[in-house]
Design a protein around this nucleic acid. Structure first.
Length: 553
RNA sequence: UGGGGUGUCGCCAAGCGGCAAGGCACCAGGUUUUGAUCCUGGCAUUCGUAGGUUCGAAUCCUACCACCCCAGCCA
C-alpha cells in the first residue's frame, strides 16, 4: 500500500484526507459513457482511478454513465469492460450502471420539487437558450419558474408517465438565472426521451442529465474522490448544490485533472467514430487507432500503457504529450520482454555458391540477447536465402555497414559471407546476389582477421515461411490535427498503412500465438495479429520501429 | 467586456520561502554478431512579464500578458 509510482497532487489530497480522518477508505470510480470505445486518454483516467484505489488500499468501481440512451449501445458496454480488464484492473463488485439508480434519481427529483428547488419548465430548446442569457449577460427567469409545488409534482409525474412529447417539458433546478456560472442558471435535470435504453428498455421516457446523475451516483456508491477532467470544473458548484439539497447517503468530493492530449493523434470519441464510420480505418480496433483495443491489436502491452501513464503524470495544466513518450514506453517494455526473430521485408535472394545444394544446418540462436530464460530457437541455414533488398549495394561508402560487392557482412546468428556478383534483370535491377561463406565463422570472427562491416538479418529461402506484415505510420501528418479550424479528416496520412504481402520469416515464427510480441531484429517490434494470424497464413503487425539514429536523426 | 482554470528546458513534470529533481527528445563519446539495447557525459545563472515584500522568492503580494474551458433538453 505504500510502494508508489510518482506522486501527484491527487495522491497528496487523498493522503491528507486519510490522515485527517475525513475519509476512512478511498473509493474511486471510472465512469465511462458507453457511447464509443475507450482510448488512450481514458487509459490515463483508468490508471489514475484504479491506481489510486490500489495505492491506498481502497476500491474502484466501474460505472457506466448511461443517461443518454440515444448514443449508447451494448457493444460499447462490452468493449469497455474488456479494455479495462485487459489493462489489468479489476473493479470492485459488479459493474454498475447509472441506469440502475433511475428510480432513486426520480425520487430525489420529487424531493427537490417538494422543497421548492425544482420546477417543470415548458420552454422549448430555443426559448431556453434565449432565456439563459450569454456569457456576459444574465439570463431571465422562465415564465414557468413560479409554478406551485402541486402543479410541478403533477407535471413531473405526467412527464414520467409519458404524457408529453419529447422536448416539450423539462425539469429544472431553481438556482440563479443571473449566475456568472452558466451551469447554475436553472440547469436541466430531466428531459423527455422516448427511446429504448440498452439496460432499462422502455421503462423510462424521462432521463436525468449528467449533472443530475453524477454526484448522486457517486453518493450512492460511497465514492470519496470523484475524479474527472478539467472541463467539469464549472460543474462542481452544481455537483455540490445537488448533494447539499438532497438526502444523499454520503458526501463525495469532485476533483479535476488535465486530460491527455497527444500530438499527431486525435482523442475525441466523436472524431474517432468518424474515422471508423467513414472507413478511413478498419474499425475501432484498427492498429492505427489510439483506442485501447487498437493499441492492443498494434502490439502494445498493458504494462507499457500503464508505464506511459505513470510517465506523463497528473496535473491541472493541459499540455500536449509527445507521442515519442508513448513510443518509448512500448519500446522499453518490448526490448526487455520480446523474443528476437528475423524477418525479411523486401526479399533479395542470395545464393551461396560454395554452399552445397540440399544441405541444411540447424543453427541455434538465443531468443533474447540478455534474457537467457527466454531460451533459443533453431535457424535452418541453406544455400539460398533472402536478405533485405536495402541491405545490399553494389558499391557504397564506408558508412554503409551492410553487404557490398567484394565486401563482407555477418548474417545474424550465422556465417560471415562475402558478395561476389550481382545478377540483374533487363532493366538493370539487382535480382539476385551471388556470394560465398567465409569458413568457420559461426560464432567466430574470420580467421584472416578481416572483420565484416556489419550484421544483417536473413531467412532461408527453402525453410523460411512467407507472411503478411503490416507496417504502420502515424495516422495524421499534422502534429495537431485536433487544433484550430483545420479539418482533421484532410490531415489523414495517406501512407499510414503499408501491407507487405511477401515478407519472409524464420520458420518458427509461423507458430506464434496471436498477440505474441517479437522484435524482428534491425526492423522493430511486431505482434502476431490477434484475429488474422494463423500458422498457415502468418500475419504480423508492426508495433513500433526500432530507434534509428543512423542518418543523424 | 462575465465566470472558472493554467503558465518551470523543444515536450511531460518535480518543486509547497533557503539558493531549479526526473523522464522524453536531442547532442557527443564508449561497448556491441540488432546502425537496437546498454554505459558515460552534455543539455533552464533561470521559473509568462513587470513591480513589491524578505537577509533570501519559481515558491508570498500586486498589476499585466498569453492560452484553455463554459451560453447541449451531450458527457
Amino acid at each position: 500500500m505504500d510502494n508508489k509510482p510518482a506522486n501527484n497532487f491527487l495522491h497528496q489530497i487523498v493522503a491528507e484526507d486519510l490522515e485527517a480522518g475525513r475519509v476512512s477508505e478511498v473509493i474511486t470510480r471510472f465512469p465511462p459513457e458507453p457511447n464509443g470505445y475507450l482510448h488512450v486518454g481514458h487509459a490515463k483516467s483508468i490508471c489514475l482511478n484504479f491506481g489510486m484505489a490500489e495505492r491506498f488500499g481502497g476500491q474502484c468501481n466501474l460505472r457506466f454513465d448511461d443517461t443518454n440512451p440515444e448514443k449508447e449501445s451494448p457493444e460499447y458496454v462490452a468493449s469497455i469492460q474488456e479494455d479495462v480488464r485487459w489493462l489489468g484492473y479489476q473493479w470492485a463488485g459488479e459493474v454498475r450502471y447509472a441506469s440502475s439508480y433511475f428510480q432513486q434519481f426520480y425520487d430525489w427529483a420529487v424531493h427537490l420539487v417538494e422543497q421548492g428547488d425544482a420546477y417543470v419548465c415548458d420552454l422549448n430548446a430555443e426559448q431556453a437558450r434565449e432565456y439563459r442569457g450569454t456569457l456576459t449577460e444574465p439570463g431571465r427567469n422562465s415564465p414557468f419558474r413560479e409554478r406551485s409545488i402541486e402543479d410541478n409534482l403533477d407535471l413531473l409525474a405526467r412527464m414520467k408517465a409519458g404524457e408529453f412529447d419529447e422536448g416539450s417539458k423539462v425539469l429544472r433546478a431553481k438556482i440563479d438565472m443571473a449566475s456568472p456560472n452558466m451551469n447554475l442558471r436553472d440547469p436541466i435535470l430531466y428531459r423527455i426521451r422516448k427511446a429504448v435504453h440498452h439496460q432499462t428498455g422502455s421503462e423510462w421516457c424521462i432521463y436525468p442529465t449528467y449533472d443530475f446523475a453524477h454526484g448522486q451516483e457517486d453518493a450512492i456508491e460511497g465514492v470519496t474522490h470523484s475524479i474527472c477532467t478539467l472541463e467539469f470544473e464549472d460543474h462542481r458548484p452544481l455537483y455540490d448544490w445537488l448533494l447539499d439539497h438532497l438526502p444523499v447517503p454520503s458526501r463525495p468530493r469532485q476533483y479535476e485533472f488535465g486530460r491527455l492530449n497527444l500530438n499527431y493523434t486525435v482523442t475525441s470519441k466523436r472524431k474517432l467514430k468518424q474515422l471508423v464510420d467513414e472507413g478511413v480505418v478498419d474499425g475501432w480496433d484498427d492498429p492505427r487507432m489510439p483506442t485501447i483495443s487498437g493499441m492492443r491489436r498494434r502490439g502494445f502491452t498493458p504494462a507499457a500503457i500503464r508505464k506511459f501513464c505513470e510517465m506523463i503524470g497528473v496535473t491541472r495544466s493541459d499540455g500536449v504529450v509527445d507521442v515519442a513518450m508513448l513510443e518509448h514506453a512500448i519500446r522499453d517494455d518490448l526490448n526487455d520482454n520480446a523474443p528476437r526473430a528475423m524477418c525479411v521485408l523486401r526479399p533479395l535472394k542470395v545464393v551461396l555458391t560454395d554452399y552445397p545444394e540440399g544441405q541444411v544446418e540447424q543453427l541455434s540462436a538465443p531468443a533474447h540477447p540478455s534474457r537467457e530464460d527466454l531460451g533459443s530457437r533453431e535457424l535452418p541455414f541453406t544455400r539460398e536465402l533472402y536478405i533485405d533488398a536495402g541491405d545490399f549495394l553494389e558499391e557504397a561508402n564506408k558508412k554503409f555497414k551492410r553487404l557490398v560487392l567484394g565486401k563482407r557482412v555477418r548474417l545474424r546468428n550465422a556465417y560471415v559471407i562475402e558478395a561476389d556478383s550481382a545478377v540483374k534483370d533487363d532493366a538493370g535491377n539487382v535480382i539476385e546476389v551471388h556470394a560465398h561463406t567465409v569458413p568457420n565463422t559461426i560464432g567466430l570472427d574470420p580467421e584472416d582477421g578481416i572483420k565484416p562491416k556489419g550484421v544483417i538479418q536473413w531467412v532461408s529461402a527453402s525453410a523460411g515461411r512467407q507472411a503478411t506484415v503490416r507496417l504502420y505510420d502515424r495516422l495524421f501528418t499534422d502534429a495537431a490535427p485536433d487544433k484550430g479550424d483545420k479539418d482533421f479528416m484532410t490531415l489523414v496520412n495517406p501512407a499510414s498503412l503499408d501491407v507487405v504481402e511477401g515478407a519472409w520469416i524464420e520458420p518458427g515464427l509461423a507458430a506464434a500465438a496471436p498477440e505474441q510480441n517479437f522484435q524482428f531484429e534491425r526492423e522493430g517490434y511486431f505482434v502476431a495479429d490477434r484475429f488474422e494470424h494463423s500458422e498457415s497464413a502468418p500475419v504480423f503487425n508492426m508495433t513500433i520501429g526500432l530507434r534509428d539514429t543512423w542518418n543523424n536523426g
